[in-house]
């Protein structure tokens, strides 16, 4: 009897974790689509690393470890990092990739300094940093799921409301401006949504692996469809699928960390999509190539036969 109730409790925990991971996958998959289409796949990596000093400062200021406060700090720092990246690119001749690298690593370094400072005062332990780096999908609680659901839901609803405008911004900025849409504002809006997706996702997979959660579902989805609508939907599904399957796989055996397992699941989805998706997929391309070659060969044979007949 006791065993049974323990089992039920375990399953319940697993269910909560699964729901949380699925929600996070949905949000980062859908919003990551825009990052991938704007060729800003690695901006996510920069934002997620840049969030660390924000978490540390939020803790130093409030002394609280409440997820909402830390998430807020992370969002502000991630946002400032993005702003810095944009300004440096605009004001200097330094290329985008170098700016990302320098902001990513130095913000993180500063976060580390703050973290050691907190550690020295004895308020926190190393576990806090590990959580930031690798996420804590396995310890997601009901209240976390609520936070993720509300914040992520708001982000997705905003994305849907401004669907047409965001699509135009990503596809053709100049045209969008010419018909009167404020592209700066839209850019800020889209980046803010991305920041929300990232700081939420940090809880599941951590800073190091966050970029995969944005990029992988979108890249996989792109192979199956040529429509943005379907791509965002599929990316959300793939993200959720990776979240759930990663959670389940890591729960089957001890010492399989959840975050990396989720990322590997997402990677497998990408691999399968690139290989087998109809039309764009590699296997499909190979078949088409072979077929067109054999068509060509038949046609050439026919011509050859014809000319031989004529010469006879």
């Amino acid at each position: 009897m006791e065993n049974l109730s323990a089992l039920i409790r375990l399953d319940y925990t697993l269910m909560i974790v699964g729901i949380g991971a699925a929600l996070l996958g949905t949000v980062s998959g859908a919003l990551g689509t825009y990052a991938v289409l704007r060729r800003q796949s690695l901006l996510g990596d920069a934002i997620s690393h840049a969030a660390l000093p924000g978490i540390a400062i939020a803790f130093l200021l409030t002394g609280s470890k409440a997820p909402l406060i830390l998430v807020f700090g992370a969002a502000v720092a991630g946002w400032l990092g993005t702003l810095l990246i944009m300004s440096i690119v605009r004001l200097t001749r330094i290329k985008y990739d170098s700016v990302l690298a320098i902001v990513l690593s130095t913000f993180f370094g500063f976060g580390l300094v703050l973290h050691t400072l907190i550690q020295r005062t004895g308020n926190a332990n190393q576990a806090g940093l590990d959580t930031f780096l690798f996420g804590q999908a396995a310890t997601i609680l009901e209240s976390d799921v609520l936070t993720i659901g509300i914040l992520g839901g708001v982000a997705l609803i905003i994305m849907l409301i401004f669907w047409k405008e965001l699509k135009l911004l990503v596809f053709d900025e100049g045209f969008a401006a010419s018909i009167g849409f404020p592209i700066r504002t839209l850019d800020v809006l889209l980046t803010s949504l991305l920041v929300i997706a990232i700081v939420l996702g940090l809880q599941a997979v951590g800073a190091v692996l966050m970029s995969a959660m944005l990029v992988a579902p979108a890249v996989a989805a792109r192979q199956w469809t040529n429509r943005l609508r379907l791509m965002v939907f599929l990316a959300a599904c793939f993200g959720a699928l990776a979240g759930v399957s990663g959670t389940i796989i890591s729960s089957t055996a001890s010492r399989i960390p959840t975050g990396p397992t989720i990322v590997l699941c997402a990677t497998v989805i990408v691999g399968l999509s690139i290989a087998f998706a109809p039309n764009r997929g590699l296997v499909w391309g190979r078949i088409r190539h072979r077929r067109s070659r054999s068509d060509l060969k038949t046609a050439a044979d026919g011509l050859l036969k014809q000319s031989q007949q004529r010469s006879e």
Partner: peptide, 21 residues
């Protein structure tokens, strides 16, 4: 050349963008 033609959309959709304004 100012846009990415690999963007996931079709012909009718691009033309409809002309109505967005």
């Amino acid at each position: 050349g100012s846009v990415d033609w690999d963007f996931p959309t079709n012909v009718l959709d691009v033309v409809m963008m002309g109505r967005y304004g």
